[in-house]
Amino acid sequence: MQGPSETPYEGGVFQLAFAVPEQYPLQPPQVRFLTKIFHPNVHFKTGEICLDILKNAWSPAWTLQSVCRAIIALMAHPEPDSPLNCDSGNLLRSGDIRGFQSMAKMYTRLAAMPKKR
């Protein structure tokens, strides 16, 4: 998945792992980031995503594609009130948007961009 433009994740390519349960689509798929990402709603170590539609707000009408869209939307609009990444959440909640963006950009460069050097 490509990082959405005009975000600190722009230019990055993020790998996701989808685990589709047997009861899908009655049960939501389990999705996590394989690529490291600095985002308040993504666990920095495990890549777990805190997204309501992957938990209690799941509807069988959703598809894997719509889940991808939702994740892209989440990357563009982080939700610092339910943080899995406390550092990132704290930066945003304290209003340090510049600090958050530079951190996120740095990790995108480090983890999500093909190495050139």
Binding site: Q23, L26, A57, S59, P60, A61
Partner: peptide
């Protein structure tokens, strides 16, 4: 949706419409 899925949603899940919840 088909009747099978309707039944499964009613019995195994929360019994809410997938389209509008």
């Amino acid at each position: 949706l088909c009747l099978f899925c309707y039944k499964r949603i009613l019995e195994d899940n929360d019994g809410r419409c997938p389209g509008c919840r």
